[in-house]
Design a protein around this nucleic acid. Sequence first.
DNA 1: TGTTAGCACTCTAATCAAAAGAGTGCTAAC
DNA 2: GTTAGCACTCTTTTGATTAGAGTGCTAACA
Lengths: 347, 347
Amino acid sequence: MEDKLDDRKLKILKAIIRTYLDTGEPVGSRTISKYAGLNISSATIRNEMSDLEDMEYIIQPHTSAGRIPTDKAYRLYVDTMMVERDSEYKDLKAKLEEKAGKLDTLLKQAADLLASTTNYTTIVSAPRVVTKKVKFIQLTKVDNDHLLTIVVLDGNIIRNNIIVLDEEISDEDIAKLNFVMNTALNGLSADEMNINVIQAVKAQSKGMSTIVDAVLDIIASVLQDNGDPEVYTSGTTNMLKYPELADKEKFTSLLDTIEQNKLVTEWREEIPSDDEESHGIQVYIGDETRLDSMKDCSMVTATYRIHEGVYGRVGIVGPKRMDYDKVVSALKSMMSELDDIFKEKGE
Amino acid sequence: MEDKLDDRKLKILKAIIRTYLDTGEPVGSRTISKYAGLNISSATIRNEMSDLEDMEYIIQPHTSAGRIPTDKAYRLYVDTMMVERDSEYKDLKAKLEEKAGKLDTLLKQAADLLASTTNYTTIVSAPRVVTKKVKFIQLTKVDNDHLLTIVVLDGNIIRNNIIVLDEEISDEDIAKLNFVMNTALNGLSADEMNINVIQAVKAQSKGMSTIVDAVLDIIASVLQDNGDPEVYTSGTTNMLKYPELADKEKFTSLLDTIEQNKLVTEWREEIPSDDEESHGIQVYIGDETRLDSMKDCSMVTATYRIHEGVYGRVGIVGPKRMDYDKVVSALKSMMSELDDIFKEKGE
DNA sequence: TGTTAGCACTCTAATCAAAAGAGTGCTAAC
DNA sequence: GTTAGCACTCTTTTGATTAGAGTGCTAACA
C-alpha cells in the first residue's frame, strides 16, 4: 500500500493534523466534516480515514476514538504543508537590544524571549569555534605567583586561565615567551599544532619548560573545546502545559536530558549548513531526535553565526504536535536578529 | 499557652518529626506508641499530641488523620535536635578531583554530586567578589579593529571584553593607556573610583577619550557585578520524588523560581559569615525563604571561600521534611573539600 | 492524678458498577 | 461514489458503597 495520496486525502489529512495540532485530542470524522472548506459527510471521511490509517499516516489510540497523526504525517506536514507566518516577530530585536551588552546576557535573553513567545522550551548553546585557530596569545604576570594566560581564537572568542607559578619568572622571560608563542602558534589550528611545532617552541624557551607545558596544555584544551558546553535554557515548565508530556515519568526523563545537556551534545555531531536564508533550520520529529526521552517530542533547531567559523545553535523543544509554523518563523526571526547584532558588533 | 515542653512531650515531638521525615505520611498515635525507646500507650500519646497541637508544633490535615509537624517544629528540630552524621561523605573529594580542571567544571560537578548523594535539588552559584578591588588592568590590541580589555580583580577573578575600535590606535598609545590606568586604578574599589580619579585618568590620556570611556564603562560594570549570576543547577527532577512537591502547579512555580535564578538573587542580600567551621550554614524553612513558590520547601545553604573576599554559595532545596541531618553534613563535607581545593590552587 | 483500654465517630481512599459520550464500521439506500 | 442510519465498542465520568486509619471521649485502673 504505497502513498497514493490523492488531493482529497491530502486535504483531509491536513485538516486532521491542523486540528490535532490545536487540540491535542484525537480527531473524529464529524469534526473534519465540519472543517472549513471541506464539504464532505462524516461517513465519507470515515472511509478516507480508514485508508489513511492503512497508509500509516494516522492511528487510532483505541477502537472507538478519533485518529491522531503519526510521525510520518508530521514529517509530511513539515516537508510540504507548512505555512510560514512572517512579520509576526518583528519586535524581537527591540526587546533584545535593551541591555544586551554581554554575550551571555544576550543569549539568555534570546532564550527567554523564544520560550515566552512560543510557549515551548528553548535551549541556546553558546557559540562554538568550528575552525579553531589561534589568533593571539598573551601571557601576563598578575603578581609574583600567578601568570594570566589569554588565548584569543578566530572570531574573537576569548579564553583565559591562571597558572600558579612554582618559581620566579622575570619580565624579560615573559616577553620572550610571548614572542615565541605568538610567532610559532598564531594562525594554527589544533591539527596543525603538531609535535614539530611544539618542539620548536620548547627549544626556544629553555629553562621555562614547566610554564611552557602548562601554557600548551591550556591552548590544547581550548582548541579541543571538550568542556561542558555553555547552555542557556528557558521555559522548561512550558512542557507541563501539554498533557502528553506532563506525565511524571516522561517529564522527569525529559528534564534530565535537558539538564545534562544531552541535546546540545547531540547537536555537536552535525555540521551547520551555511545557508544564510534558512539559518540551518532542522526539524526532528519523535525518534528522529535519537534520544529515547524525546520520543514524544519534536525539536526544531537553527544556527546563528557570530563570525566566520563560529556558530551557535538554538533549539526549541515541544510536543510532537507543536505549532511548527510558529516555531520555524519565530526561530528564523530570532536568528536574523542575532546575525544582525553580531554583524554590527563585528565591524 | 506557651512552650512548656516537658521531657516527654519533647521526646514524642521528636519521634513524630523523625517518623514524618521518613515517611511523609501523617503520623498516628499508635505509630508513636510503638516507637523505639518510648513505652507509652497510644491513648496517652493522643493526649500529649492534643497538647502539642495546641502549642502549634503539629497539625492535623483533617479530623481523622495523624499529625504532621509545623514549621515551628522543624525550626525546633533544626535548632536543637539535629544529629549530624560525619564521615559519611569522605570520598567526595576523590570523585571531584578527577577532572576538576576548570572552575565551571568543578562547580557543576559539585552540584551533580550533592544532588545525587542527597536526592534533592542543588544550586551552586559561581564565586562573587565581595570586596571588589581592581588588581590589574590590561588592554591589548587583538587586531586593528579590536581592543581586548582584561580586568583582574582581587582573588584572581578575571573578566574580559572586546571593544570595537572606531579609529586607529598606535601601540604606544595603548602602552601609555595601560600605564595610566594601572597606576590610577589598581587597588581601588568601586567606591573609591570617584569622579576625581576618573578625571585624572582622562586628563592623562587626551585624544583617546572614546576608548577611555569604553574601558571605564567596562570596569564599572565589572565592579558592580550586576549581571546575571552564573549558576549551576542539578537534580531538579529530584523534587518530583516527593509527592508534596510533585503537584503540577507547585512544581511549575518552583522550577520557574530556580530557572530564573530568584533564589540566588535572594542570597546576594545576605553577607556570608566568615566562620570557617560552620561554613555559614543557614537553614530556611518554608516561608523563611521569602519566596511564595518555596513555601512548601526548605533550603539549606552554605558558603565556600575561593579567596579572601571572594565567596560562592551552595544551596540544597527539598521538601520541608528533608533529611536536614544528611543535608547539613553533606554540605559541610563538600564545603571543606572545595575550600581545600581552592587553598591548594591559590598557593 | 496520671495512665490506659475500649468504643463510637469521622474523614479519606479505594473499589465497583452504571451511565454517558464519542466515534467507529458496516449496511443499505441514493 | 457518497451518504444516512444504526448497532457496537471503548473510555470517561459519576455516584455509592466499603474498608481503613485515627481520633476524642469516657470510664476504669494503679
